[in-house]
Each structure stands twice: as structure tokens, then as C-alpha cells.
Design a binder for these strands. Structure first.
Length: 300
DNA sequence: AAGTAGACTTGGACAC
DNA sequence: ACGATCCAAGTCTACT
């Protein structure tokens, strides 16, 4: 499942393929992929044809590249999106689950396929505006131009311009379960179900606890754990829990064998041996150790 | 306004 | 064997 480390792995690959190239043509094979585009697939195709592309930028799980027509091409992986340079010719039949295809010139790849089994991913154009805090919009470029499509997304844990003190305060203002707050991309971006559960385990905090009951130190521990886990995962190309996430070369990430709780419900806690539990929070599974993560504990 | 619940999608797992 | 049901995910929309 693409979360921040997986998106950043893909961004690095995409940057080499897309930056400085020209889009010669575009085919959209599934209308849902262009569902956020005004005018749908036809508009996307028309507006992107002939456009020149800038650096590939990422904030949280949102990626984009600025185009010569003044808009940003938004690229979101959803839960199963993959970008692959498959060297396809115009008119060649789509491969299984291929939803769109770019034809490129001026770069290392002649084509770039967007493959997305579950169609939660998306490609669309968005207008841009300068960031309100005057810092670069995301990772991958110094540009301040932030697409409207990502303007509601908070800075992520690997962003050097993230204000950890403010985020800590904001989190503790919420009465929602801390797990839900971590998944709220408008408060802190980049977390998905995997890294949220992992960070909560490392910090020793039960995900059902109301964020407003946590101490500043506890929230700081959760955020610090998130930073360290995401950096470690990124260094291993991310987590490929199933076959839905691979990088632009088709390679899986290798962080799955380091996961401490995600996907391990019923197995032994790697810290204390207690059997790991699972509950549902906001319709998402939360795996935790009832011994290491006490719902009512105030301090670790 | 903050918070929650529903919708979307599809292939794999599972119980029958 | 086979249809049925549930599950997983990220984000947007709608409602309280």
C-alpha cells in the first residue's frame, strides 16, 4: 500500500523519467483515472499533449509535476497505482490493469504506463498558487507553487519545513482517536494504515486513545517514531505487503519483514511475546499489543 | 466547524 | 465445484 516511503520511492524514479521531457501524446484507458479532471479524459489528453514537464514533487502521498501550460499534473497512486516505462507504441493494446499511458520525448523513456488494479489512483491537472508559509511546496523541487489539488494536504514527516511543535499542538486539540488523527492528511500527511500502526506501537500508545488525552511527550514520541520508521522503510524501497506496490522498475520494497505489528494480528509481539490484537477504528483495522500499548496509560 | 459515515473499486481469502 | 460474502486500501463527498 503506497504510503510516504513508497510514494517517495516512486517519485525518485519518476523524476528521472519525466523531468525535462515533453508529452507527445496521452491515452486514458479507464475513465475513473481522470475522474478529478474537469472534462475528464478528453480534457486531460488535450491539455497535456505537447506540454513540457518540470521536476517531480511530492507532499505526503500526493505527487505532481509542473507543466508548461501553467498547471500541475497531479499523480496519485491510490492503493495500487504503479508507473512503469514499458516502451509501448501508440495504439498498442493496454496491458492488464493499465489505465493510462504517456508518450514522451527528450527523456530516457518513450512511454510511461499507469497501472492501477483498484483504480483509486488518479491523474488530473490542477492550478497552482504559492505556498502560504513561503517554503518549497514539497520534496523534489525548490518551487513554491503548490497545486490546489494538494493545498489541503499538510506537510509530511520527512519535510524539512514541517513545524513539529505546531503539529504536536494541533494533534492534541483533537478529541478523535490518535490513530484517526494520524491518518488525517490535513493534519499530518504521509501516514497510511501501516506506518500509523507501526509508529503507535513503537511509541507505546494505543490507537483508540483520544489525541486530546496524550501528553506533548507522547505525541512527540509518536511523530519521532514515524520519522524513523519512514526513513528506514524508504532506505529499503518501502513496504510491499502484497503485489500492489512496486517501484518504476517493477521491484518490490523489502521493508515488510521489519514490520512489528501491521498484518501480524494473532502473532506474538516482538517486544514482549503477548499475542497481538486487532480492533476496528474508523472502519480501518488497528493492530496493537495490549501489553505494550495500554489504552489508559498516561506515560510510557 | 469538527467529526463521522458512506461511497468508490476489485481480486483474494474464506466459509458454506 | 462454485456462487456468495467479507476484506483491504486512500480520499472525496455528504451529513450531523
Amino acid at each position: 500500500m503506497p504510503e510516504l516511503p513508497e510514494a517517495e520511492t516512486v517519485r525518485r524514479g519518476l523524476a528521472e523519467i519525466l523531468a525535462g521531457t515533453k508529452i507527445e501524446g496521452l491515452e486514458v484507458f479507464h475513465p475513473r483515472t481522470a475522474r478529478y479532471q474537469n472534462g475528464g479524459s478528453a480534457q486531460l489528453t488535450q491539455q497535456l499533449s505537447g506540454a513540457h514537464l518540470d521536476a517531480v514533487v511530492r507532499r505526503g502521498k500526493f505527487m505532481w509535476t509542473l507543466t508548461s501550460n501553467g498547471q500541475a499534473l497531479m499523480m496519485h497512486l491510490g492503493m495500487s497505482g504503479q508507473f512503469r516505462p514499458l516502451a509501448k507504441q501508440a495504439g498498442e493494446a493496454p496491458v492488464r490493469h493499465e489505465r493510462a499511458r504517456l508518450y514522451l520525448s527528450g527523456g530516457p523513456a518513450q512511454s510511461l504506463s499507469f497501472i492501477d488494479q483498484r483504480t483509486f489512483g488518479a491523474l488530473y491537472l490542477s492550478p497552482t498558487a504559492n505556498t502560504e508559509d513561503g517554503a518549497p511546496a514539497g520534496c523534489g523541487s525548490d518551487s513554491l507553487l503548490l497545486p490546489a489539488g494538494a493545498s489541503h494536504i499538510a506537510r509530511d514527516l520527512l519535510d524539512p519545513h514541517l513545524d513539529l511543535v505546531k503539529v504536536n499542538q494541533r494533534i492534541r486539540k483533537s478529541k478523535s482517536p490518535i490513530k484517526n488523527v494520524l491518518l488525517n492528511q490535513s493534519i499530518i500527511s504521509g501516514f497510511g494504515n501501516i506506518y500509523a500502526d507501526e509508529a503507535l506501537f513503537v511509541a507505546g500508545v494505543h490507537g483508540a486513545r483520544s489525541a486530546s488525552t496524550l501528553t506533548r511527550q507522547q505525541v512527540a514520541q509518536i511523530l519521532q517514531a514515524g520519522i524513523e520508521i519512514m526513513e528506514r522503510s524508504l532506505s529499503r524501497g518501502g513496504t510491499s505487503f502484497d503485489q500492489l506496490y512496486v517501484d518504476v522498475n517493477g521491484s518490490a520494497g523489502t521493508f515488510a519483514d521489519e514490520l512489528l505489528v501491521y498484518g501480524r494480528a494473532g502473532q506474538a509481539c516482538r517486544e514482549c511475546g503477548h499475542e497481538l490484537s486487532s480492533i476496528s477504528l474508523n472502519k480501518r483495522s488497528h493492530v496493537y499489543c495490549a501489553n505494550c500499548q495500554r489504552p489508559s496509560r498516561n506515560l510510557k
